[in-house]
Nucleic acid binder design. Structure first.
Lengths: 237, 237
DNA sequence: TTCTTACTCCCCCAAAATAGTGAGGCAGAA
DNA sequence: TTCTGCCTCACTATTTTGGGGGAGTAAGAA
């Protein structure tokens, strides 16, 4: 048992391409005897990176139907630190249930277990096992493998970050301390006058910081700048 | 060896107070025979939560001197996903080296290993082991225990989040689909006209959504609303 | 030393956002 | 049925932001 974990991790270490990761997810699926094993990044623009055993049809449909917006798995994982068993989520909304049915029509099992993973600069990824099983069996399976799965999820994410060079120095702009303060106060709901007062500088000076931060963040306006600063983790509210 | 990990995790599960966590860090220190074991949250305001074996004098000094701002451990961990051995960080800056010397004068060892942990809403925590050892021994120690330490770090963070009731359901308001779309487009940097066009509604209608979302989120202005929507995870950019 | 970066302050004016009202239709729940 | 929430549209006046300039000091790096 333990030996096979090491084996998976080792093939993961040796993966140098996306196909390599793909192969790892397939090996994991076969080993755990689940329907699917998927690792992917999440953001609103769409899937930027992912490897897994879902059929391309389902992935396309998921994106096309904008299921990202109503998927309780995404929503639930985004708000919690611990992994989640799908059945424990809130499926009361009708569109969500329709999505689940649609998923099952596309070859997914009724049970799922998803581990949320967060990296630097607001990176957010999910590692999911999907299977056909009854509730008790699935609980037992999860209990038994939770720790190994967490290790695997982390190693997968580490590898994915290496591939994409997420958040290297070039990607995450450095804001000066005053710029950070300015963005933080704005994120707290202050207007320019209030933020300037808080920082005991003139509103004109504050504006310089805001504009400077906007440019560094590549933002179109203040709201965008604050959003990016939050999403990339350069400020915390 | 494995049994003792379970033992630590079990006492962690049973901890119901901050003192309980404190006890766990002490037990871990004794078990791993290190100088210190520390878990704490990091944010711009200062330490909001923490448990560990550092002397109160050192903690006070750290905060007082604002070492948070120049500590390569904080900075390094904030930018990476994987744990870090202190010696591998960039200590070229003079203030950083001065801080390290200061730390050693306050009972810290020369070696450290820190695991960054990220939770929902930008939560960022660190789990650190500090010891007096030579480079090779420390490497060996880390290699041997890395996996267990990661599990412990995660369980600690889980417990800490429970204590603080980070992001419970009552805190996160429900936005309607159109409100969510509106917030999302604004977070992407669109102005009202562009967002309205994207949603194929009049700008007036869009305004209603923005104001409605603002009120639900308890926000003072649009930027604040978007910031809260992002921070609470109701939208993803 | 020189050069860069961060920090501070000021002007004007156009563009955008906000606050205060209003109303009607349509779905689902009590 | 009545009520609530969601979606849609409109007006006016005021406040806030954004874009375009420019300029001097201090600290730290090359």
């Amino acid at each position: 048992m333990k030996a096979s974990l090491e084996q998976h991790l080792s093939s993961l270490q040796n993966a140098t391409t996306l196909e390599g990761l793909q192969g790892v997810t397939e090996a994991l699926r076969d080993h755990y005897k689940t329907s699917h094993v998927v690792y992917h990044w999440v953001n609103s623009i769409g899937e930027r990176f992912g490897a897994g055993t879902y059929s391309p049809e389902w992935v396309d449909r998921y994106l096309e139907k904008d299921y990202l917006r109503l998927d309780p798995v995404i929503f639930g994982c985004f708000q919690r630190f611990t992994p989640v068993i799908w059945k424990e989520l809130d499926w009361s909304s009708k569109p969500a249930r329709a999505m689940l049915q649609d998923a099952m029509d596309h070859g997914l099992g009724n049970q799922g277990y998803t581990i949320p993973i967060r990296g630097p600069s607001g990176q957010f990824a999910l590692f999911t096992l999907n299977s056909q099983a009854d509730d008790q069996d699935w609980h037992n399976f999860v209990d038994e493998n939770a720790r190994d799965l967490m290790i695997i999820a982390h190693e997968l994410n580490k590898k994915a970050l290496e591939f994409e060079q997420w958040g290297d120095a070039a990607t995450t702009p450095m804001l000066s301390p005053r710029e950070l303060s300015a963005m933080t106060y704005l994120a707290k709901g202050m207007n320019r006058a209030q933020a300037a007062a808080e920082m005991t500088i003139s509103e004109h000076t504050l504006r310089v910081y805001i504009e400077s931060a906007r440019h560094k963040l590549g933002a179109l306006n203040t709201t965008h700048a604050v959003a990016r600063a939050l999403a990339t983790g350069v400020i915390i509210v």
